[in-house]
Write a protein that binds this DNA or RNA. Sequence first.
DNA 1: AAAGTCACTATTGTTGACAAAATATGCCTG
DNA 2: CAGGCATATTTTGTCAACAATAGTGACTTT
Lengths: 226, 226
Amino acid sequence: MPEDVIQTYTRADEAFDCLQTAIVKGDLAPGEKIGEVELCSRFNLTRGPLREALGRLESRGLLVRRPHAGVKVVSVSTDELMELYRIREVMEGLAARQAAERMTDDEITALHTTLDAHEAMIEQAHGQAYYQAEGDYDFHHRIATGSRNAKLAQMLLGDLYYMVRMYRYRLSTASGRPHMALGEHRRIVEAIAQRDGELAEFLMKRHINAARRNIERKIAEGGLTI
Amino acid sequence: MPEDVIQTYTRADEAFDCLQTAIVKGDLAPGEKIGEVELCSRFNLTRGPLREALGRLESRGLLVRRPHAGVKVVSVSTDELMELYRIREVMEGLAARQAAERMTDDEITALHTTLDAHEAMIEQAHGQAYYQAEGDYDFHHRIATGSRNAKLAQMLLGDLYYMVRMYRYRLSTASGRPHMALGEHRRIVEAIAQRDGELAEFLMKRHINAARRNIERKIAEGGLTI
DNA sequence: AAAGTCACTATTGTTGACAAAATATGCCTG
DNA sequence: CAGGCATATTTTGTCAACAATAGTGACTTT
């Protein structure tokens, strides 16, 4: 029997997942103060497991909690979102470098396949930004796990991506430059396939930097307000 | 009244702090399976707040929890410790760059003062590795907060440093190269004072890389076993 | 009339008891 | 004698009642 398989989903895990997706999807608006009992009735939970989940969410930075004053979903300014991208830049750069050094050939093949699927997705779903965002997430997810750096993957997948995705939903994938992003993805995978870690790191950093500037520009143009 | 001041320390906060320091100091050995009731009696707590704290610790990666099977302190291999240093390298590099761009003049003055204090400390306490480690922590702490990147500081101070410190205690500051480290620190501060972000990033990355290789060497030489 | 204080209410923090699950032990069987 | 199954015990997960705190509203006082 595998060790890391979770046999039973505890109520606390359930609460954690429910709340996390609710926050990411925007069902719980940022800044909104929300009582524990209301959350309980909304997700059919009891306060014990709920409080445990709240603690986890808090330490992940998705909500803030003031003693005796309730919890509220964290509201991130555009400046803070830009800071998140700066962190992603260096961390995912490292992930790409280590992935180039350590990914198995099978994983690299899977990466190619993934990109092909994304290309098809982009052709079909013109403007279906949501699915493109999911594809993008899938790509970065594979690189993070491919780095064989457990802590790095945990920090990227467990912390940063949730916060970024939270804004992706609201901005409805501000990226909006699917073809260009796909090309950049292809180049990164190429570098990884050639086991050129240095190049993979450079390309990944530039890729995320471009995504950040793109969002920044869109926000500056008006329209996009968080 | 400041907003972010915590008026009341809840039992859960207390539990969190107690457990965290116990883990960092090694009072709770890695890999050791430990029951909830034992923890309660040991820290004069009740199970409710304790469980909340356990959840937080788990999501920070300091302990692992299997449903119905108890918690155990995470045990990190030397390989994983090296991976932590790789993450530190890129993240603290970013922190140094942003600190160079954003620190106030007062903060930079304080940095200089800190380094002077470290120098005096090294002269006096020959071989008192523990205090040197604390000084090192102080330096990196100031850079992290000086970056004005809240999430970056949170990830460094709230996640990585605790895990690194956990091993510092066991290795009794494997660094063991206080003078060299101090010189590197001075150069980094110099770059920050000149507002040269690029240089500060480069020097910080090299500094952490050197620390990593130093530990690696010491471990390879034998003696140091985790 | 305005401001400050006091009491009240609603919400959170805490506690101890109860239920469910996993591990360990002992018995039975092959 | 060894291996597997069933049971028992220990430990965790869950729940509901209790206590404490902060926010709110009304009342008094200046």
